[in-house]
Simulated scan of single mutants.
Amino acid sequence: MNQPNDENESASPQPLSATARRCLGVLVEKAKTTPDGYPLSLAGLITGCNQKSNRSPQMQVDESDALSAIDELRSAGAAREVQGNGRVTKYRHAAYEWLGVDSPGAAIMTELMLRGPQTAGELRSRASRMHKFDDLETLKTELDALIEKGLVESLTPPGRGQTFAHCLYTPQERLYLVDKIQKQDAASTGSSPASSSETPKAKAANDDRIEKIQDRLDSVTAKLEALEKRLEFLES
Rank of each mutant, 00 (worst) to 15 (best):
L42M: 15
R74A: 10
L112C: 08
G77M: 12
L136V: 10
L73V: 08
D62C: 14
G37R: 08
A127N: 00
Y38G: 02
I108R: 00
A69M: 07
S56H: 15
N54W: 11
A94L: 15
N50C: 12
L99I: 05
A106N: 09
M130C: 03
C49D: 06
V82I: 13
Q60C: 07
G48R: 07
T89H: 13
T89F: 13
S41E: 06
L40Y: 00
G121N: 14
R115E: 10
L45T: 08
L136I: 15
V101M: 09
R55W: 05
Q83M: 12
H131L: 02
A69S: 11
H93V: 08
E122C: 03
T47N: 15
A69K: 00
H93I: 06
S64C: 12
G37P: 01
A95R: 02
D62W: 10
M59C: 11
A95W: 02
R55A: 15
S68F: 00
S103P: 00
N50Q: 09
P104E: 04
E63C: 08
I70E: 04
C49R: 02
W98M: 09
Y91N: 11
Y96T: 04
A69N: 05
I46T: 06
Q60I: 05
G37Y: 01
G116Y: 03
M130I: 01
D102T: 14
H131Y: 07
L40C: 01
E72H: 05
Y38V: 02
M109Y: 00
R126Q: 14
P117G: 01
A76F: 06
V88S: 13
M130Y: 01
S64H: 08
E72P: 03
Q60L: 12
R124K: 13
L45V: 12
G77S: 10
I46Q: 03
A69W: 03
D62K: 09
E111H: 04
A43M: 14
L45W: 08
L136A: 12
L112M: 10
E97N: 15
G116V: 05
S128Q: 06
D36A: 12
A94E: 14
S128P: 05
M59W: 07
G121L: 13
L73P: 06
C49G: 04
A106Y: 06
S103W: 12
P35I: 03
I70P: 00
R126G: 04
P35E: 03
Q83S: 13
E122L: 07
E63W: 06
A43I: 13
G48T: 10
H131E: 05
G44T: 07
I70K: 03
G105L: 02
R126Y: 10
